[in-house]
Amino acid sequence: MFDHILIGVSDYTTAKAFFLQALEPLGVTVWHENSLGIEMSQPGGISSLCLRQTDEHPARLHIAFTASSRAEVDAFYRAALAAGGQDHGAPGLRPQYHPHYYAAFVIGPDGHNVEAVCHAKG
C-alpha cells in the first residue's frame, strides 16, 4: 500500500540481484531501469520499489510486500535466502499482529528488513 519506496544501496548489482530473486515468487519484475537505478513492480501494480546506488549510509528500513497466499510467503523466504538474504523470521503466523498474519522476514544485502505478508485465512 505504497506508491513507491526508494532504497539507497551500497552495491547496486548485488542489491538488484537480491531483490529480483527474492521477490520473483511475488510476481515482481523490472518495470524500468536507467542510469539513475531500477524500478520494480508486480504486473499491473500501483506501487514500486526503486533502488539507487549511493555512498550514504541510510538507517535500516523495514519494508513489507503483500503476498496473495501463504505459499507465496514461503516461496519468498526460500528465494530470499537463496539470493543471499539472512534469516530474520521464518514463515509463520504472527498472532501478536492479528490472528491470520502470516509472514517471513529476511535481512537484505544492506541490512534492510524485508518482509512478505499474507493476511488471508489459511
Rank of each mutant, 00 (worst) to 15 (best):
G44R: 04
W31V: 03
D87P: 04
A67Q: 08
H100S: 14
H98T: 09
T14K: 10
E115Q: 15
I107V: 15
Q53F: 01
A71D: 15
G8E: 13
L81R: 11
E56A: 14
P99G: 06
Y12M: 07
G44L: 10
L51A: 06
D11V: 01
I46S: 11
V106M: 02
G122C: 08
R70K: 07
S47D: 13
R78Q: 15
F19P: 04
D74N: 13
A64T: 12
K121Q: 15
Y77Q: 07
H100W: 09
G37W: 00
G45M: 04
Q53L: 04
Q86C: 09
Q53P: 00
A59R: 12
A59C: 11
Y12N: 05
F2E: 12
V73G: 03
T54L: 05
W31C: 00
H62F: 10
L20Y: 06
D3L: 10
L51M: 00
M1I: 04
K121Y: 09
D87A: 12
L81M: 14
I107L: 14
C118H: 13
G85D: 07
A15P: 03
W31M: 11
L49V: 03
N34S: 10
A75M: 04
L81G: 08
Y77H: 11
A116I: 07
A80Q: 00
S10G: 15
G45S: 01
A82D: 14
D55Q: 13
S69W: 04
F19T: 00
I5H: 14
P109E: 06
S68Q: 12
L61Q: 11
L93K: 03
A103T: 13
L93H: 09
A59V: 06
M40Q: 02
H119P: 14
R60I: 09
L61N: 11
D110S: 12
R78Y: 03
P95N: 12
A116M: 11
I38R: 00
I107A: 07
P99Y: 05
G84C: 00
H98R: 10
C118D: 14
C118S: 14
F19H: 15
S47L: 04
G27I: 02
E72N: 00
D87F: 01
R78C: 13
D55L: 11
R78L: 12
Y97E: 07
D55H: 03
A79E: 01
G27P: 06
Q42T: 08
H32Q: 07
T29S: 10
R70Y: 03
G37E: 06
H112G: 12
G45I: 00
G111C: 07
L61V: 14
R78S: 15
